[in-house]
Design a protein around this nucleic acid. Sequence first.
DNA 1: ATGAAAGCGCTAACAC
DNA 2: GTGTTAGCGCTTTCAT
Lengths: 332, 332
Amino acid sequence: MNKRKVTLKDIAEKTGFSINTVSLAMKGQRVSEDTRKLIVETAEEMGYIGNALASSMRSGLTGTIAIIVGDIANPYFASIIKGAVNLLSAQQYSAIIYNTEEREDYEKNSILSALRQNVDGILYCPVVKDGPNTELLAKSNIPFVIFGGISQNPEINTVGLDDEKGGYIATQYLLERGHRDIVFLNGPDFAHSSKERLSGYKQALLEAGIPYDERKVLHCDLKNDKMIWDQVKYQLSQVLDYTGVITYSDMTAMRLYSLLDSEDFKDKAISARDIIGFDHVMATFPLPIKIASVGAKDIKMSVVATSLLLDLIHKTSQEVKKIVLDVKVYVP
Amino acid sequence: MNKRKVTLKDIAEKTGFSINTVSLAMKGQRVSEDTRKLIVETAEEMGYIGNALASSMRSGLTGTIAIIVGDIANPYFASIIKGAVNLLSAQQYSAIIYNTEEREDYEKNSILSALRQNVDGILYCPVVKDGPNTELLAKSNIPFVIFGGISQNPEINTVGLDDEKGGYIATQYLLERGHRDIVFLNGPDFAHSSKERLSGYKQALLEAGIPYDERKVLHCDLKNDKMIWDQVKYQLSQVLDYTGVITYSDMTAMRLYSLLDSEDFKDKAISARDIIGFDHVMATFPLPIKIASVGAKDIKMSVVATSLLLDLIHKTSQEVKKIVLDVKVYVP
DNA sequence: ATGAAAGCGCTAACAC
DNA sequence: GTGTTAGCGCTTTCAT
């Protein structure tokens, strides 16, 4: 028993109508109620399941969206993907997910694969802002939105957080709690958001009359690079004087917190209250540690980015949008 | 400038060869080195990007796999998805991800969508074992693997953990640490793995000569249902006597741990050491809390399930496989 | 309201 | 080694 899939043709033969009429009936268009009913019932009976490939071939639309991110297991991205997927599926879109491991060559492969699949649009969080991959995408003429960082290219639709303000309010949060020596465990220095947040950090210190000390700003890799992290640990445990820490992400905050137990930090007396992170992953994830976090205010970036993409696909909006989301400190 | 996508036909016209030859050349088959080179270079130059839809239409293979799970933001699933996606993309497969919110109707829609997309195979973690959705999938004649729980249906390929042993060794772990009053914060009672783990729990107690007390087994929803969780909290803080807890997942362990801070648990003195969870999410996620966890030993379920699915697709294996992975306790 | 015909871009089957 | 032909299943266009 080798069940070939039931096609419109099969239904047409069974009901005596033409393929065309069957197609129309299935979509409830321009056919009499009687034939519609007959056809739909026959289809049901025969176990008809449409062929999206064939539809797409002709219509030029696939109803699929590609989501390209650095690490789908990272709760930050996982939460964004979930938000996007839920919104998309409500509009009958499917999502193809690409995991780039934060590698530009994988990013390129992912983009090419997405283009080959004729996706209707792409949500893309690039590792490097305005690099060759973004260029490649821009040349492809397919709607896409860059999220998680604002591309400088004025032609490109972007959604991101107000990182400068984020750095500012994170610093302010710790200042208000009496800290005057604040380490900033920032992201990689090539990242645009790192620069922006640093700028906010400096501004807050300036306003508080605290001199900026560049030794207190460390950079940690997005990935959990052992060497870099060992270096960070050494600085934090042996070298620097501080009472509070800002981390680039809540994940980094967690790693930091994990360190605090060890012997090396015995005389530091840093607690969860003295740390503030970014991304507000607690919103979707039951973190047992009470660490404050900077995140988008009132709204989810995934929803904004996905809505924008859908608008672009449906040509609702034409002009390029660069959306900067307001941020706030979430205190658990 | 409305760039239509470059097709094989365009390349054929430019080079003077037939469409067929161009197609063959692009795949490096049966053509002379000279023509291959010319064609490939011309394609490159013209910015040719294949059309997977058209290929699939003819060949019957799409090179896409659907992954259907209850909650893609849950680190347990996120980690599985990442493992699967990485393995798949290494073999040139794309992954369409469906998030079912643990709802059977969403599951059904996801399955139908996947079938419409003509995916080559499906990885599916159903909410209910052997329910109508699994039935639907089985009737579709497309290769699929159920993971995260062993379907009782002998016709269906499954990959799961040895849950009975898991419950057993989790209990043993706490017994060895001197606990004699152990609460089991188990999963929903309709879940097969809940039953299996409970069975292991009972067995371990029996062997230790500790009478089984059914009041000590609570059920918590997969989702963070407030009412159920409040009830659990009440039982744990006011009613039950215990010194250790086994939780159904590491996420549940985290929620539990979050409770421990509150006033209600002041006289309980339960610490992270007295809790053991399931899933071993720490493997991919920097949890700052030192909670032991039961997980697959030596190997990742995602890899096993994906490999099995690929085998099925490539017809490497024909007979139905029911793979039960060995488990161990991971102590942080 | 229904049908006939064309064709989306590619690949498989067969010819030469 | 290369070309010709047919057709995957559907939608679109145009005719009736």
